[in-house]
Amino acid sequence: MLPATAVSLAVLAALLAWPVPALLARARWPRRDPLVALVCWQAIGLAGGLSMIGALLVHGLSPWGHSLPEALRSVLTAHPAADPVRGDHWAALTLAGVLASELLGVLVLSWVRTTRTRRRHRELLELVVEPSAELPDTRLLDHPAPVAFCIPGARPLLVLSSGMVAELDGDQLAAVVAHERAHLREHHHLLLLPFVAWEAALPVLPAAGRAHAAVRELVEMRADDVALGSLSGTAPRRTLARAIVAAAGGGEEVPRGALAVSGGATGARVVRLLEPPSPLPVPVRWAALASAGLLLLVPTGLLVLPAL
């Protein structure tokens, strides 16, 4: 059963490496529900990595057993292979180890580098920013450009520049702060990290860059939606849209590793705020979530079920 399992996992890996991400990146429905779309993207990334490594591992271990658990048990207990071990088996095992090490290593390295960069920026900013008297948990930076960003981490930092404060009114400033607090509260930096690592580990794969860009845009749209829920006034959507347009001029001043209200397809976000799309119907929303769950269960099932 292992050869068929390996082929099935390889086909699934190929689908998740290109056509499925391409279709989701071009689809219009994610803008109607960024949260559900983010769940789908996470499922694609996890299932794709599991399928790629699983297909190689299953093929490489096939001489040791009729199921992956059996083969692993035979190898770990030093039982001899039941079938001849060919060069392609060793090549598959080697490639599986290299790919797993690269994906996990790049993920850890990306986390370490990003954390170090954010800590350095935070330490530098804390020397020049001042607490805001009007906006709690917000720091003010003396800078003419309209800049607003947050640096996530164990000690998150939410920063507004003096240029931003001068350009926006009270409602617009509240919208910007609500947007940045949404990033911090929902830990959006953790949703982005796997796709940063995916793009770094597989730069030749077009889907990696496409997925990273799509997730970054969806994270900003999700923060917009969360911010709208906490805003008052007669036209909160227009208020937030004006704040985004104002912040777009200072996007180049945002530190690396920060999350900013000016990040991720500002034009599309402004259009979405001023002309809000209809929400996904509840059945469609649950169908998308179920599909994401099924996407994770399929490779897991292909690896485990043959042993039952």
Rank of each mutant, 00 (worst) to 15 (best):
L218P: 02
W90F: 12
V112A: 11
R272L: 10
R28D: 13
L23W: 12
A178P: 09
D171M: 12
E130G: 07
L50R: 05
A246G: 05
W41C: 06
P80V: 11
A197P: 13
W29P: 08
A197N: 09
R122D: 04
G170Y: 14
I244K: 01
H66Q: 09
L104A: 15
H66W: 13
L158H: 03
V271K: 10
G153H: 03
V108L: 15
A27Q: 12
G209C: 11
P306H: 04
G170C: 11
L57F: 12
L99V: 13
E180V: 01
A175R: 06
W111M: 10
R118C: 00
L259A: 00
L191G: 03
S67V: 07
P84N: 06
F149K: 00
R26M: 10
L231F: 01
L308D: 02
V75W: 06
P277T: 02
S110K: 01
L2F: 03
H143Q: 05
Q172S: 13
A154Y: 09
A91N: 08
L240C: 06
M1C: 10
S51V: 03
A241I: 06
V85H: 04
P144H: 07
L218Y: 04
G301L: 02
L2Q: 00
R73G: 09
L295D: 04
L190C: 11
G257F: 01
L38Y: 05
R32N: 07
L158C: 02
G87Y: 10
L38N: 03
R32V: 07
L218G: 00
R32H: 08
T266F: 12
S161Q: 09
L125Q: 01
D224N: 07
T77Q: 14
V261D: 03
S132C: 11
L56I: 08
P19W: 15
R32S: 11
T234H: 13
P69T: 13
L141F: 14
L190R: 14
P236W: 06
E253G: 05
F195T: 10
H89S: 07
A100M: 12
Q42R: 11
